[in-house]
Nucleic acid binder design. Sequence first.
DNA 1: TCAAAAGTGTTTGAACTACACCCATGT
DNA 2: ACATGGGTGTAGTTCAAACACTTTTGA
Lengths: 237, 237
Amino acid sequence: MAEKVTPVLKSARKERQNLQSFFNIAVSVDCVIFGYDKNELFVLLRESELEEYQGLFSLMGDLVRPNEDLTEASYRILFERTGLQHVYMEQVHTFGKVDRHPTGRVITTAYFCLVNMQDQRLAIAGRDVDWYPVRKVKQLAFDHQEILQLCIRQLQERVMERPMIFHLLPTRFSLRELQSVYEAILGVELDRRNFRKRIALKDWITDTQTMEKEVSHRPGKLYQVKSGYLNTTQSYQ
Amino acid sequence: MAEKVTPVLKSARKERQNLQSFFNIAVSVDCVIFGYDKNELFVLLRESELEEYQGLFSLMGDLVRPNEDLTEASYRILFERTGLQHVYMEQVHTFGKVDRHPTGRVITTAYFCLVNMQDQRLAIAGRDVDWYPVRKVKQLAFDHQEILQLCIRQLQERVMERPMIFHLLPTRFSLRELQSVYEAILGVELDRRNFRKRIALKDWITDTQTMEKEVSHRPGKLYQVKSGYLNTTQSYQ
DNA sequence: TCAAAAGTGTTTGAACTACACCCATGT
DNA sequence: ACATGGGTGTAGTTCAAACACTTTTGA
């Protein structure tokens, strides 16, 4: 094994000339931005700018700039559309069918983001974007429906395994709220007692010694995520 | 919510002109091709062609052609280097740092492939590629070490959950062989009795009513994967 | 006093772990 | 006879699921 063959070495500079003709696929990033409110999972959409998709909504996407890392591009798009930074983000998949974009050959890398819809810094008013309940989204421009579905699936697969759900909630939350977010994401009802035991086992959250106020029922304890579990950065880009 | 804003529509044709200046990031695919032999996990590597990485090995990669889906490109690269088709393949991650490639801006999508090193159709002799034990790979060209590590991690995370490991083995195999492949991938020793129970629970394999031959110990039963578990195609590209 | 959600424990089954002995074959 | 791996079962633990009643608050 491993016989050595002496290759004809190419320098990067010479190589660049040969490659120029291949620099003709555009690269984009699409952000699937999830939020949670009133027992419902929402996704941020905007109306497609393309004639071909008039009347349809699309995800937040843009081409990657020549001097921008892929993750930088994703954070830029998020910031441009929401005013938010330091948001939880995961790369999901890269979609590369030849005909997926009518403008030309564009491959796109999909990320999902989890944001707190109550965040005061969230600035979508006056922009061409809005929140839509994920359950009601039936059709999107491009292959964005497929992208959305895969992001939901990945969110569902990971949300019980890793402490990521807290990015969707305010700093302090009740166990009831936490359970409702899980139910909205997973699309199932959970048993309250089993849920509380499971969350206790994870050891992600801590009692804040405060209670809900101004609720028309017995107030619950408020919890917060333990420090160190609100990281937004990925290991790999 | 969802106030409508009337956007200025752009046609795909007009849009294409605006985008031309962005068609300047190259897109590549890197295949991490895994094989198994004699209690070891191997990866297929070749010597880097670039002066900058002289003496280092690299993964099998190439630029994506303008009329080629991302997965097509990955299968083409695999076929060019191994002569194999219809191989198990999963997309892992897309790496997009600005400076990851000395030739210019190249983002790359990594796939891992599982091949049977005993496959008669495997044709790497005379090509500039060879198998290296994964454990011994310490340094690679570009960011290929990072790509390899992430592919190994994804393989490890999924190999017990999905019936993919059989692509690394001949059609018929003993439970001992199967256990050894798991051990090579996971980097741990497994208890034989517990392993057999676990595999029985998965219900992936079936007894072939044949036995090992010409082994210098008590021969074991030979098994094969149940039909339907050797799919090579992915749901998403 | 009623409505609404908070809070809490037990029982069962499934799956995983650790662990030891006899069996069949080739040399 | 010996070396090598084949083949098997039990006991303990952990985790998940099913399931009901009392408590606290606001209206």
